[in-house]
């Protein structure tokens, strides 16, 4: 089954929010439309409502050993959003994520051509996703001892905005390097390095908004197109250990809906609310209403999603070109 050509509403919505966020930030500096003034680290909407990047706020609070009302309020708003909805910032707002998304679709198109014509495969290197925790820790540790928010001067998210706002040449060069790296190691930054994503995922691990799975519609041999398209490298059909309502239970899920977009079977759906997590319970207790042999096979895997996201993103054409690989679950 071919993926639909047209973007579904949520892809429109998230691309629009990300583009609007970036546009307003640039207009806030370059024009007189001061609707959203600031950088990704901290902004004010219409000069009143403060927003602060939860990681930048954390760094500044640790480095300066002080709190201000504006900063706490601004960070609390976005932290609440992450707690309720998960790391939606990554999939729906982040300017860098937006650009890397476009970069990835370009790469995918080129990759399809290469695979079909020459049987040559694009390299897809990766780092384990736990690396993000290391970077997050390092950023906090540096703020504590180094006493300045180091990530905010290095963050490619910031650099995208700065380049467009102030025309920073060195930042632009760095971003070009990052874009090139993304062609050999797709989504390396988002999956394995971004400490902001790591922090938001940490906050949003019990979020109410989920990608739900209707396992009964999936059949015995899932096509795994969702997994192949997940920008975070989540094994979609396997990461669902929530009791009662099976849902993607990987804290790194950005709720971008890429998996829903490509799912031709109607297995995946947006879901609000879920039962309590039961990672600790025995595998047999989960999905007791489902197919028991399948349940055992799937829940025997680590549900934390700590494994490296080794699956390359590809379109259905690319998948078809490598049908032997795609027909089995894409394990590393």
């Amino acid at each position: 089954m071919k993926p639909p050509r047209r973007w579904p509403w949520w892809t429109w919505a998230r691309r629009t929010t990300a583009a609007a966020f970036l546009t307003l930030l640039v207009l806030g500096v370059r024009s007189d439309y001061h609707w959203l003034v600031g950088s990704t680290t901290s902004t004010r909407l219409f000069g009143v409502v403060p927003f602060a990047d939860p990681l930048a706020a954390l760094e500044v609070m640790i480095a300066s050993r002080s709190l201000t009302g504006t900063l706490v309020l601004g960070a609390a708003l976005l932290m609440l959003l992450a707690v309720l909805l998960g790391p939606v910032f990554c999939g729906w707002v982040c300017p860098l994520g937006f650009l890397l998304d476009l970069n990835a679709s370009l790469r995918r198109r080129v990759a399809v051509k290469l695979v079909l014509k020459s049987r040559w495969k694009m390299p897809a290197w990766t780092l384990p996703r736990v690396t993000r925790a290391l970077v997050l820790g390092a950023v906090v540790g540096f703020a504590l001892v180094g006493r300045y928010p180091a990530f905010q001067t290095l963050s490619p998210i910031n650099l995208v905005v700065w380049t467009l706002q102030w025309g920073v040449t060195s930042a632009a060069l760095f971003l070009v390097v990052l874009a090139i790296v993304e062609w050999v190691a797709p989504r390396l930054w988002c999956r394995s390095l971004c400490p902001l994503g790591g922090w938001l995922a940490l906050l949003g691990q019990w979020a109410r908004l989920r990608i739900g799975i209707r396992r009964e519609l999936a059949g015995r041999a899932p096509c795994h197109r969702c997994t192949l398209h997940c920008p975070m490298g989540i094994r979609v059909m396997e990461d669902h250990s929530l009791a009662g309502k099976p849902a993607v239970d990987d804290p790194d899920c950005t709720r971008c809906g890429s998996c829903l977009e490509v799912c031709g079977q109607g297995v995946l759906h947006w879901q609000w609310g879920s039962g309590p997590r039961n990672h600790e319970s025995s595998p047999d207790a989960q999905h007791s209403d489902g197919n028991s042999s399948e349940t055992k096979h799937l829940s025997g895997r680590n549900p934390h999603g700590d494994r490296p996201g080794t699956v390359d993103v590809g379109t259905s054409e690319e998948v078809a070109g490598r049908s032997r690989q795609a027909s089995r679950p894409p394990a590393g």
Binding site: V130, L134, G137, V140, G141, F142, L144
Partner: peptide, 15 residues
């Protein structure tokens, strides 16, 4: 574990 290791590394780099 990686988070704690990161804090140590970051603190060292900061120093």
């Amino acid at each position: 574990f990686m988070g704690v290791l990161g804090v140590v590394v970051g603190a060292g780099a900061g120093g």
